[in-house]
């Protein structure tokens, strides 16, 4: 492709699709790469979304993403269900390569690649992934009907995963390293009042047991240092996320945890013509609506940049 585009949006989800809506309406003819297997982002793996404004009866995550996608297509966004595999963002014209080998050139880029699940970091956690270790309750919970499941984590994701899993499991144990949860009050209440959920406090998982599938966990009590082993049929890890910024190392300024740094409350990165939004930037709020908000800002920042360059 020898033409030079005005803007390429890398990533989808509420941030990427909202950026596309605004960029398309600003007649920038945006091209959006939504991801070959990750299109739609984190909300594709959730069920009801009850806190996105505008939906008094809630909305299913995938349906919300489908609506946003249709909305950005309506205004002329060209969407590729593919990945950007490398980017050179240093020049005035940014050069990107996609998973099918095509090269794109663009005056500006909006980064919206979001975040990926954090792993505990255990060897056996990785080894048994897909064999009883999972990061996605809606994906895998179905296979653990009447089983005993462990969920590690203390935030909203952990509460949501645990609650969802009670649809299938005979029992769900939430294992958390402190004695209080950082989840929202309503989610904590729901989990605590669910008869199938029990909490194991002040405890961390130090190993995952099982030969070719999960059979149990090795736990350590952080107050007494006592170690124990307990039988479980599955481990769902819900301890947070890490930004997907691997392709940006060395060219875009990142903070100590890999989040993209932006200028004040704008979406401007250290590189002229490169803007970042959504969970790739946000450590603090990480909601669909805040991602959508920063996606809009990124498109407006890009529009202003293009008007003067």
């Amino acid at each position: 492709m020898s033409e030079i585009l005005d803007v390429v949006i890398v990533g989808s989800g509420p941030a990427g699709y909202t950026a596309a809506i605004y960029a398309a309406r600003a007649e920038l003819a945006p091209v959006l790469y939504e991801g070959s297997v990750t299109a739609g982002g984190a909300l594709m793996n959730t069920t009801e979304v009850e806190n996105f404004p505008g939906f008094p009866d809630g909305v299913m995550g995938p349906d919300l993403m489908d609506s946003l996608r249709k909305q950005c297509e309506r205004f002329g966004t060209k969407i590729f269900t593919d990945d950007i595999v490398s980017m050179d963002l240093s020049g005035e014209i940014k050069v990107l390569t996609d998973g099918s080998g095509n090269t794109l050139k663009s005056k500006s880029v909006i980064l919206a690649t979001g975040s990926a699940y954090k792993e505990i970091g255990l060897t056996n956690e990785k080894r048994l992934s897909g064999r009883g270790v999972s990061w996605c309750a809606t994906c895998d919970g179905f296979f653990f009907r009447e089983k005993v499941i462990a969920v590690v984590g203390g935030g909203d994701s952990a509460m949501e995963e645990a609650t969802f899993l009670t649809r299938f499991a005979s029992k769900v144990y939430v294992i958390h390293r402190r004695d209080s949860l950082r989840a929202s009050k309503i989610m904590i209440e729901r989990a605590k009042s669910n008869p199938k959920i029990e909490f194991i406090w002040n405890t961390e998982v130090i190993d995952v047991l099982g030969a070719d599938k999960v059979s149990g966990l090795k736990l350590r009590n952080l107050l007494t240092s006592e170690e124990s082993e307990r039988d479980f049929d599955a481990l769902f890890v819900a301890i947070g996320h890490l930004p997907r910024s691997e392709l940006l190392i060395g060219q875009i300024d990142l903070d100590g945890e890999g989040y993209v740094k932006v200028d004040g409350r704008s979406t401007r990165t250290n590189q002229k013509g490169v803007f970042a939004c959504g969970d790739l930037v946000d450590h603090t709020y990480r909601q669909a609506i805040t991602a959508a908000g920063t996606g809009c800002q990124a498109a407006l920042d890009a529009e202003r940049f293009l008007a003067s360059h």
Binding site: V37, G99, S129, R131, G132, D140, F143, F144, K213
Partner: peptide, 28 residues
């Protein structure tokens, strides 16, 4: 075949599972 996560891709050669890939991965 002990499937507890989908998508799981199993490669069968001569009736035996010789490779398992769990999770959706890009084409390359």
């Amino acid at each position: 075949y002990g499937i507890v996560s989908i998508p799981t891709l199993n490669v069968y050669v001569n009736g035996e599972v010789v490779k398992t890939v769990v999770g959706a991965k890009p084409k390359p």
